[in-house]
């Protein structure tokens, strides 16, 4: 049985905006699912509905086999949430707010556990600091500590690494992997493709309230892993030389550069052969550069696919 089951979940906000359009989704125990989607896609809306922050307009969902509406107590005990917006009481001290969260979720005080979590997040030295004396990244860590302190089995991370430095990002990934090893299921949203690449098992793409696809990361990465090699020529050419036609090159309108698309997931990229062929043609190279198709482009192509 899946640990999270979403069946036809829809959300229409008061203004009439349809932020979720009958989303159905299954998430297996212990997996890491990355939800990707442009701003306003509905990622936060989906998470809020599952966590009880907003009520879905229609549809149902279960967490750990418990219905989020009728058995909300049991369902929510299993859920930890790190929200997108940093919301913390400014004058409270770190340790108090973390203890508060644990109590709120019905768990008895456990100082050893809280110490472990705070140390893991490098917050232990700051435990007696007031929240408003912390930096933005540290506040985000406090939010994570609050979400973890009641030992959730399903963790929602809504853009946990937005505005976070490289080090904390790596720490975060480490923590996420550790939680996964303990059998915790993790759903995270992100705008960084390398983040999804680094930690996710599956990737879901959501746009305009619709879940376009949920796919194994490796399969998706293969599709996303298209790269382009741009070759600037020393002298412009009027057409792609006939010996190079097999490479499917694109000539720029002014004839000064060639673009070659290749796949990093394949066995060979064909770059070596192409460069040799160029040399044989006697074409002098001025510069070469490679670009990876960005998440934005992938969205565009997927959305175009989805609607077209």
């Amino acid at each position: 049985m899946s640990v999270v089951e979403v069946n036809g979940l829809s959300k229409i906000y008061d203004g009439g905006l349809e932020a979720l359009k009958s989303v159905s989704l299954r998430i297996e125990k212990g997996e890491i699912l990355a939800l990707l989607g442009p701003n306003g896609a509905g990622k936060t809306t989906l998470i809020s509905a599952l966590c009880g922050i907003s009520s879905p307009t229609s549809g149902t969902a279960q967490v750990g086999g418990y219905d989020i509406a009728t058995q909300y107590r049991k369902a929510r005990c299993l859920i930890g949430l790190v929200p997108q917006e940093v919301a913390l009481e400014p004058f409270e001290r770190v340790i108090n707010t973390v203890r508060f969260s644990r109590g709120l979720f019905g768990k008895a005080r456990d100082d050893a556990l809280i110490e472990r979590i705070l140390r893991q997040l490098s917050l232990w030295d700051k435990r007696h600091s007031r929240i408003n004396a912390l930096s933005g990244g540290m506040k985000r860590r406090v939010l994570i500590a609050k979400a973890l302190c009641h030992e959730p089995r399903v963790l929602f991370l809504d853009e946990p690494t937005a505005g976070v430095d490289v080090e904390l990002r790596r720490d975060m990934w480490q923590i996420v992997r550790g939680l996964k090893a303990d059998g915790v299921t993790i759903i995270l949203t992100t705008h960084y493709i390398e983040e999804a690449e680094a930690i996710a098992d599956r990737v879901g793409i959501i746009n305009k309230g619709e879940l376009l696809l949920v796919e194994e990361k490796n399969a998706l990465m293969a599709r996303m892993g298209r790269k382009t090699l741009r070759i600037d020529l020393q002298a412009p050419v009027s057409a792609v030389p006939t010996t190079l036609v097999g490479y499917d090159l694109e000539l720029s309108p002014d004839g000064t550069s060639l673009s070659y698309h290749y796949d990093t997931s394949g066995n060979g990229t064909g770059i070596t052969r192409l460069l040799q062929a160029l040399a044989q043609e006697g074409l002098g190279l001025r510069d070469i550069q490679t670009t990876q198709s960005s998440l934005e482009e992938i969205f565009v192509s997927l959305v175009a696919e989805g609607t077209g």
């Binding site: 966590c51 949430l81 913390l88």
Partner: peptide, 18 residues
Amino acid sequence: YFPKFIGTIFELLSAPVN
């Protein structure tokens, strides 16, 4: 009002409390 104002109400809403 304060948790509503600063947004920390999310925690109350997501907690297993009635």
